[in-house]
Design a protein around this nucleic acid. Structure first.
Lengths: 346, 346
DNA sequence: TCTGGCACTCACCAATATCGAGTGCTAACG
DNA sequence: CGTTAGCACTCGATATTGGTGAGTGCCAGA
């Protein structure tokens, strides 16, 4: 399609107002309606000509002959990439955000839930926040409790006041005393260090172990290794899913079912969100762009959030393709920053 | 309505087959169809007479003049209470159940999830399991970690391999050493005892404390008290909600939304389930009977489950009023028993 | 007490007509 | 040459109509 992309000022402005209009009232937009735009001093007929061009380029299309035009995915894409004029947050909304995240600064997970709920409440769509990667967070305390045979229950606490637990399978059976000893050792050596650092240390120590004699230490490091092997993010906090039930574009029960199944499977959604973690700022998937069929009629607006200048997770808003991007984008952006700040260790 | 309740054998049988029929194909049942029942040797006209009686008693009603009859809530109620012939589980289903719950017997919560998933998978409706009351479960280990000021992070592990954590507010600030000491004391005195027993002991000790001198012990008991104050069940594991989206009786988006909102609020559902905990065996709420408007078009079939002969929780199935009670009831019943067994400490 | 008969009701369906918003095309205009 | 007015056309949405059939209530007769 060489040369098809030369869009003049006018067509772009027309596309912009068309999309805005469609987002506003959800009805296909006709030439008559657009001709009433004060800035667009054109007759319906001329507008129809422009529209025909836009349609040829795949930016809009009409659901049927005698209906107005509706943006296609590419139309939305062009809109959000180049035409959008983002509205800065109203100060009242900013207040709401800051206030909403500054509760009794409890556990990290509480802050995440609050953020997710805020996202959904303010946008009246669904809010999602991935659990932060446990990399930069530091270890406070670790403990082993025997289960049956070679299974050991590990409990460790990080400095964000989260208590993690996990069952590991050791190569041999340990007595409670041995486990206690191992925990003591690990606490003395690792506590106060970040999990990333700990993983490094484990590797080092395991090399040295070959030459060492103290079996207790070797066991301890082995167990630490089983405990702290990096595991990918696999969970998130979702809120306001039910808000999505109000939208007519999701009123098809089959679609809705698929969407909600996707939410509870988590797998696919996580995969999608993971793709956003490397993006610099706000990232948007519109409709089928996500490549995940359950989201075909949805858009996803995400932003990564960081603690100590390191990206640790992603948050976002899920809604119908027809959403008020100009408001959602700054909102997601700011929420990500505030969440990062709220998670920073004091 | 005195004397309106005298239902003869025949009317009851008719009601029964009507309800069965309606449950089977979801269509209003007419007199013609019923007259074909081999056991019911009556002409359509006579059946209409009986139906008129049943309608007068509020057991059935017709959606409109020229439609068949549909059971009302009272009709269903009479049906499940007196007319139902429960089908024993097929042995293959029993296998599936037993097999499904006997995975790698991990943490209690894993077993609950499995049970919930089983309930929803087999019935193709939604399955729900409340978390077990932590009464008969015994304490393995407790630990305190300081947070800011007077806040302390408590971690305790019970013999079902569950790790619980909670933030308590103490009356004064403790040093790490003091906390360690308190934990040591509590571990030596309480571990191996059930939480119920521990609560008893706390009360006793607090009375004695008045006369004692050892401040450390007093502090420890105080913290234990904050930790183990009984808190009502407030959570459950839900599976297969999306199965509910397939049912035509729930195809109304507003209704569905309310239902799913109820699921995520949890409050109301818990309240409802709590009412079933005292019931001896299977308990059923049909439609509006639950008194919870979000469930107006649903039925809930529940059974309490027990560990060591003590009821600790409830599980159940949520589906449309028109469900195959004769299969769901025994299924819920058996699952409750198997879950109880699976949770029993080995 | 049961049953056959009969008039009646009413949801459901398909065919049909009307309306109006919106289009594409063309010819004329500046 | 871009813009515009005019016009025939398309097609979804809505209402109207009539026919069909399942099901009913009632009554009279066995």
């Amino acid at each position: 399609m060489a040369g098809g992309q030369d869009l003049n000022e006018r067509s772009l402005y027309l596309l912009k107002t068309l999309v805005e209009r469609y987002i506003q009232d959800g009805q296909p937009v006709g030439s008559r309606l657009l001709s009433k735009d004060p800035q667009l001093k054109l007759s319906p007929a001329s507008i129809r000509n422009v529209m025909a061009d836009l349609e040829e380029m795949g930016l809009i299309h009409s659901p049927h002959t005698s209906a107005g035009r509706v943006p296609t995915v590419s139309g939305y894409r062009l809109f959000v990439d180049s035409l959008l004029t983002v509205k800065p947050l109203a100060s009242s909304e900013l207040d709401q955000l800051q206030h909403g995240l500054k509760g009794e600064a409890d556990k990290a997970s509480d802050v995440l839930s609050k953020a997710s709920k805020l996202l959904s409440d303010v946008t009246r769509m669904a809010g999602v926040v991935t659990l932060p990667r446990r990399e930069s967070v530091t270890l406070r305390h670790i403990e082993f409790l025997p289960m049956s045979n070679t299974r050991v229950l590990v409990i460790f606490v990080t400095d964000d006041q989260e208590v993690h637990n996990k069952i590991i399978h050791t190569h041999k059976q340990f007595s409670p005393a041995e486990l206690q000893q191992a925990a003591n050792y690990l606490n003395s050596v690792y506590s106060g260090r970040s999990l990333a650092k700990i993983r490094d240390l484990i590797v080092q120590e395991m090399e040295q172990d070959q030459r060492r004699v103290n079996q207790g230490m070797i066991d301890a490091v082995n167990m630490a290794q089983l405990t702290f092997t990096e595991q990918p993010n696999d969970d998130y906090v979702l809120s306001g899913e039910t808000n999505l039930m109000g939208f007519s574009e999701l009123s098809d029960m089959e679609r809705l079912k698929q969407l909600f199944e996707a939410f509870s499977q988590k797998r696919g959604v996580i995969h999608l969100l993971d793709q956003c973690i490397q993006a610099e700022g706000v990232q948007i998937f519109i409709g089928e762009e996500s490549g995940y069929s359950a989201f075909d009629h949805c858009s996803l607006v995400t932003a990564p959030y960081s603690v100590n200048d390191e990206v640790v997770g992603v948050l976002g808003v899920i809604g119908p393709t027809r959403m008020a991007y100009e408001k959602v984008i700054p909102f997601v952006d700011v929420t990500a920053k505030l969440l990062g700040a709220a998670l920073n260790p004091k």
